[in-house]
Simulated assay, not measured.
Amino acid sequence: MSEEKFTLDQEDFIRCFINGWIVDARDGGLIVGRSHEDGHIVMMQGTSTFGKFEQIGFVEGGEYIMSTDATEAHYDRLKEINEDNSPCGDEISVSSDSQIINTRAEPHDKFLVIQRQYIININSTRRHFKELEDLNRPHRYHRGRILSDEVIEAITEPGFVKY
């Protein structure tokens, strides 16, 4: 597999969004999806050009991504947690309030849209899951919204996307 980075222009991004290939991870949460060995999950971030997104790296299922605000508020603690990468077989116990970011799809996992967020490795996520949830919970604000109401209205009009 090529490790070359790629970009999505506005038209391609909207096409991916409409067809369910984009997951907004800016609220943070537990990532569900492929491991690095099984193909990993592509992270995308907006560029300085409106509507253009670029690949910035890969994550894997079982990692925890913090929201942008939680990353800023708790950076030193997150760094300390993430450095604890010794093997951990603990099972993660999710609750009805757990933030889950599901990227599972075929033939590849969906793309994650992020914005300057800290990603916690799998072992540290297993070991510190409850604390990560507690640190992230007060800083969830996007509620899964990438586009404004005006843009959503425009792209859901019949004929907007030409195939």
Score class of each variant (00 low, 15 high):
Met1Phe: 14
Ser2Ala: 14
Glu4Leu: 11
Lys5Met: 15
Thr7Phe: 15
Thr7Cys: 14
Leu8Cys: 09
Asp9Ile: 09
Asp9Tyr: 07
Gln10Thr: 14
Phe13Thr: 03
Arg15Ala: 11
Arg15Leu: 10
Cys16Trp: 02
Cys16Pro: 00
Phe17His: 10
Phe17Tyr: 15
Phe17Thr: 00
Ile18Lys: 12
Ile18Trp: 03
Gly20Val: 11
Trp21Ser: 10
Ala25Tyr: 00
Asp27Thr: 01
Asp27Tyr: 01
Gly29Val: 07
Gly29Asp: 12
Leu30Lys: 00
Val32His: 08
Val32Phe: 01
Gly33Glu: 02
Arg34Phe: 04
Asp38Tyr: 15
Gly39Cys: 05
His40Gln: 15
Val42Ser: 04
Met43Thr: 10
Met43Gln: 13
Met43Ala: 06
Gly46Val: 04
Thr47Ala: 01
Ser48Pro: 00
Ser48Met: 13
Ser48Leu: 07
Thr49Gly: 01
Gly51Asn: 01
Gly51Pro: 09
Phe53Pro: 00
Glu54Gln: 13
Glu54Arg: 13
Ile56Asp: 08
Ile56Asn: 14
Phe58Ile: 04
Val59Lys: 07
Val59Leu: 13
Glu60Ala: 08
Ile65Ala: 01
Ser67Thr: 01
Ala73Asp: 04
Asp76Thr: 12
Leu78Glu: 04
Lys79Cys: 06
Asn82Ser: 15
Glu83His: 11
Glu83Gly: 09
Asp84Ser: 06
Pro87Leu: 08
Ile92Asp: 08
Ser95Ile: 05
Ser98Asp: 12
Gln99Gly: 14
Gln99Ile: 02
Gln99Thr: 15
Ile100Gly: 05
Asn102Trp: 06
Thr103Phe: 04
Thr103Trp: 03
Arg104Gly: 00
Ala105Asp: 09
Pro107Arg: 05
His108Gly: 01
Lys110Asn: 04
Lys110Asp: 00
Val113Glu: 04
Ile114Pro: 00
Gln115Tyr: 06
Gln117Gly: 03
Ile119Cys: 14
Asn121Gly: 11
Thr125Gly: 08
Thr125Asp: 15
Phe129Leu: 05
Leu132Met: 12
Asp134Leu: 11
Arg140Trp: 12
Gly144Cys: 07
Arg145His: 12
Ile146Cys: 02
Ser148Ala: 08
Asp149Val: 01
Ile152Ser: 07
Ile152Gly: 01
Glu153Ala: 13
Glu153Cys: 03
Glu153Lys: 11
Ala154Lys: 10
Ala154Glu: 11
Thr156Tyr: 15
Pro158Glu: 12
Gly159Gln: 13
Phe160Leu: 06
Lys162Tyr: 06
Lys162Trp: 10
